[in-house]
Design a protein around this nucleic acid. Sequence first.
DNA 1: TTGTGTTTTATTGCCTCC
DNA 2: GGAGGCAATAAAACACAA
Length: 259
Amino acid sequence: MDSGRIFFDSSSNGNLLFLGNGDSIFRGGSRVMNMGESSKRRPFFGTAEDLYDEEYYDEQLPEKKRRLTPDQVNLLEKSFEEENKLEPERKTELAKKLGLQPRQVAIWFQNRRARWKTKQLERDYDHLKSSYDSLVSNYDSIIKENNKLKAELLFLTEKLQPKESTQEEGFDIQNPNPTPAPYLQLIMKVEDRLSTGRQRRGQLLDSGDSYLEYQQGCMASVEGVKSEEDEGSEEGGSYFSDVFAAPEPQEPVGWFMWP
DNA sequence: TTGTGTTTTATTGCCTCC
DNA sequence: GGAGGCAATAAAACACAA
């Protein structure tokens, strides 16, 4: 216990209680009782009048910091639900009802607002986190679906190769560079993009790669993204880091898109 | 019983508004 | 400039495991 601590501040009707050296309690300059003498648990002042009641100090002397009674808290909570700010009239009225100092009521509201704000932040965080998680989940499934479609396209393209060679067999000397059929143009563009992508990826595949191997390669990269993120969200890091750190795609998402 | 973490009450200092 | 609000903090009260 620090010595010379004022128990009520200047708003307490001029009747300051003062904890002096040796944990003695003083009122108006004279010692009232020793802290050891007031060891029983008692509520704060019952009524405002008690503040001036000599006997009250004999029996109901406040010691250090005392918790409010459940009834007092209930009434304060009800009042807070109605309006979380406290106008002077309401403060005085509540203080009278509860037998507390107006200052105590004000402090209770202040602390209650702080608690509410903390809770609200937690709720907001949970909400943001679940939105983020569902976005990541959507992102992952889109990537998987995309990889599946790419592999399927590659597979079908390979199947079409014999048709192209048949065309070459009938080489037209009048038209050595004929414009390919529209669907072939499309496939060529996609193949071009796929090969560019593969190079950037570090030669993941050569022309002889199978559909299955390719798909496994794609899936491996997707799994890589997921596990990295899981590590990040499990422990350490700042409070919001795992919420706002977007998962890094292994490839720019747009590279395989249609022209 | 005791050590430790959490909650509640209260203070302090700064800021804004009238 | 005073009143009131808020953030940061202290400290008492409380809860609970070992």
